[in-house]
Design a binder for these strands. Sequence first.
DNA 1: ATGTAACCGGAGGATGAACCTCCGTCTAGT
DNA 2: ACTAGACGGAGGTTCATCCTCCGGTTACAT
Lengths: 210, 210
Amino acid sequence: MRADALRNSELLLQAARDVFVERGPDASLEEIARRAGVGIATLYRRFGDRQALMHAVVHAALVASAEAAEHAQREHADPFDALTAYVHAVLDLRTSAVIPVLLDRLDLAEPELDTARRRSASIADRLLTAAHRAGAVRKDVTFGDIGLMLVRLSRPLPGQIPPETQDALAHRHAELLLRGLRAVPSDEPLPGSGLELAQLRRLRRHAPTT
Amino acid sequence: MRADALRNSELLLQAARDVFVERGPDASLEEIARRAGVGIATLYRRFGDRQALMHAVVHAALVASAEAAEHAQREHADPFDALTAYVHAVLDLRTSAVIPVLLDRLDLAEPELDTARRRSASIADRLLTAAHRAGAVRKDVTFGDIGLMLVRLSRPLPGQIPPETQDALAHRHAELLLRGLRAVPSDEPLPGSGLELAQLRRLRRHAPTT
DNA sequence: ATGTAACCGGAGGATGAACCTCCGTCTAGT
DNA sequence: ACTAGACGGAGGTTCATCCTCCGGTTACAT
């Protein structure tokens, strides 16, 4: 593969990731090409169709975040620090932003994707389990909670906010979230995870939705 | 105004709010009409154009959440409980979801909108100030933090998730957030709000974005 | 330096979605 | 029972996106 072709492939993958995140799975392929700074023909030549492009984007995201998880585990002895590093890495990689957007359109049975998914999930799960075992994280916080909060933190805020600001805010709010996850002395169960729905319902008594 | 016309107006406002949240400010007006269960002509007859519809949606949202804030303050003696009730109410009203989506397209100078905005903001601000004064909320948590986290919590998650699940998750995650906001003994400043950016930078050293 | 295989960009016809008006029908309220 | 006022949806127009084809350009080996 020629060097320029390789470079354009990577530019297209990045652009596709960002545009899918912003505009959803039906985003214009021409906008992706435009954003990558290449012609539309180059996109079609490289990826054939929308499906193949989505597949490539998701595969790259899974591989990158698996590596990030391994790296976080290797570099940080303290489990909470490792988890924190992983959370920030995933925000930078936009993994949690792009995958849910494309999930419905993917063939998850496809072996290449399935392998990458399992690998990524198992390493991330190990990170949280370690944090739990060390007593660093609230007991009632699940893997799903963290995953979904990462989705929320990854998604771009609506309106015209410069990308650097978006990123800075996401990382700041991630810290806010991590404080919420952290085990504290007064460790009451969280409504919805267990039995304490009554308390939540009480607090939600408010003026009716008009 | 005839009763059926009034009912259709309200259905349209609700549908418009939801569709704008899901599809952004350029959402199809025909989809809005479809979702409201009325003909497209009814939408045009009632609101004239997209601009007027957006205006009406935002105005309704501001008024409703101002009322919710007053209600929360009136009903809860404890400032943290009041704040909690307000957060859950705003999630139900979708205020924080719809306003940022339409913000760029609105004429904020427009008096009717400006009045509603000031009123809503000042009441909400009073809620947080009270919580701060009571020492119930971390000192480095700003009004902007809460507002933006509400935006994140309000936005629909991508993919095919049933609305009830979306709502339940949003409220659960709101609790997670509120725990993070709550003042705790080991009350280190949050990176980004003050000076402690070095720590954040250290934790963010991870595998490079590919 | 030069040849060439591989790569590139963009024009352009086809398609389909959304806009917005017009008009014949229906019904809420007196 | 009457009618003012509200209703729905057809349809002409406009416009973005799709995807292919082809003439020009470039990386790289010799």
